[in-house]
Simulated scan of single mutants.
Amino acid sequence: MQQLTPKQIRQQIRQQQITGNTSGLAKGFVQCNMVILPADWAVDFQQFCERNPRPCPIIAMSEKPGDIHLDKVGEDVDIRHDLPQYRIFEQGKLIGEVADVADYWRDDLVTFFLGCSFSFEEALIDDGIEIRNISEHKNVPMYRTNIACEPAGRFSGDMVVSMRPMVPADAIRAVQICSLFPSVHGAPIHFGNPNMIGIRDINQPDFGDAVSIKENEVPVFWACGVTPQVALEQAKPPFCITHSPGCMLVTDITNRSLSTGG
Rank of each mutant, 00 (worst) to 15 (best):
G128T: 02
F120C: 05
T145Q: 02
Y104N: 11
V35Q: 04
I95Q: 13
S179F: 08
V77P: 01
A171L: 10
P205T: 06
Y143C: 06
F239Y: 05
P168D: 08
I58M: 05
I189V: 12
N255Q: 09
V218N: 08
V161Y: 00
F120P: 02
V218M: 12
I13E: 08
D107K: 11
E63V: 11
E215T: 13
A39C: 14
R256P: 05
Q15W: 05
F239I: 04
P182G: 03
Q204V: 10
S156W: 11
L4H: 10
M248G: 00
P151S: 06
I95R: 12
E63A: 15
D126K: 09
W41E: 12
Y104K: 11
Q234P: 07
T242P: 03
I197A: 02
D103F: 11
T19L: 09
N146D: 15
I131D: 06
A39H: 13
L249M: 07
F191D: 04
R132A: 14
I9T: 04
C240S: 14
C178A: 12
S244I: 07
V43K: 14
A210E: 08
C247V: 08
S212V: 13
E150F: 12
D206S: 13
R132T: 14
H81M: 11
D67P: 01
A102P: 10
L114F: 09
K138Q: 13
Q31W: 03
G153Y: 09
Q2L: 15
I253A: 01
Q234V: 12
I172C: 11
K93S: 12
I172K: 14
R164P: 01
Q47E: 15
P84C: 03
L4K: 13
A171E: 08
G186L: 06
I125N: 06
P238E: 15
M166D: 01
I189C: 11
H137E: 13
T227G: 02
I88D: 03
W105D: 03
I189G: 02
I18Q: 01
A210I: 09
P6M: 08
C240N: 07
R80E: 04
